[in-house]
Design a protein around this nucleic acid. Structure first.
Lengths: 103, 103
DNA sequence: ACTATATGTTAGTTTATACTAACGTAAGTG
DNA sequence: CACTTACGTTAGTATAAACTAACATATAGT
């Protein structure tokens, strides 16, 4: 799950994830969207994302089509929900304190 | 929101977030939990987390108590839900394809 | 078989990030 | 006021991550 966070923690990679969210895209088309960044660099980022299980690769002839792999975000998502829930827990704890003060 | 991800993308910092999830903890107690990592290093990590809005600092005498700030995870959380939803969107798209094939 | 297209891989370098050591600060204690 | 406790801050260094340039591979077309 930490691998997930690390994979997302890079501007280019996060941008790629948003790009392939709806439609699958060939590596070349992804690379073209970035200026000031070479194609090999993008290719390396794609590998990181793939290794982290955040995208899938499908080969079609000479091209490789990438698309988002939502399941890959599952563990991180539930950790975040856990963090989020502590908001409610605090409210409950605060209410408890109040109740004790004025019994 | 990218700041959020970056802040989480370091093992020590992620561990800190889990530590202060339920109860607030003084900086010293947090630092003690890590071996092979100096107190100043932990202090720096705490600052990164605070700047990212993921923890809050409360001073009590000479001590500084840190606790999780769940709201800080909001934007990332919704982005992740967005990613997650694309799972359903794909299922829908696939169903649509099926429907067309056998009208 | 040869050439073009689309892409990945590797070694080496640059750049960003984390760490350490030394110092600074602010509140409490005698 | 001197001393201690509990921290934070900074400058410099070490480490990890990303980038580039050159090379490799695999498919498709002629």
């Amino acid at each position: 799950m930490f691998e997930t966070i690390q994979a997302m923690a890079e501007p280019t990679r996060l941008a790629i994830l948003k790009m392939v969210r709806r439609r699958e895209m060939p590596a070349g088309a992804i690379a073209e969207k970035f200026k000031g960044i070479t194609r090999p660099a993008v290719s390396q980022h794609l590998r990181v994302l793939k290794d982290a299980g955040l995208v899938t690769e499908r080969r079609e002839g000479t091209r490789r089509l990438y698309s988002l792999r939502p399941e890959g975000f599952g563990p991180l998502k539930s950790m975040l929900e856990d963090f989020w829930d502590s908001k409610l827990e605090r409210l409950k704890a605060a209410a408890e304190k109040q109740r004790k003060r004025k019994p």
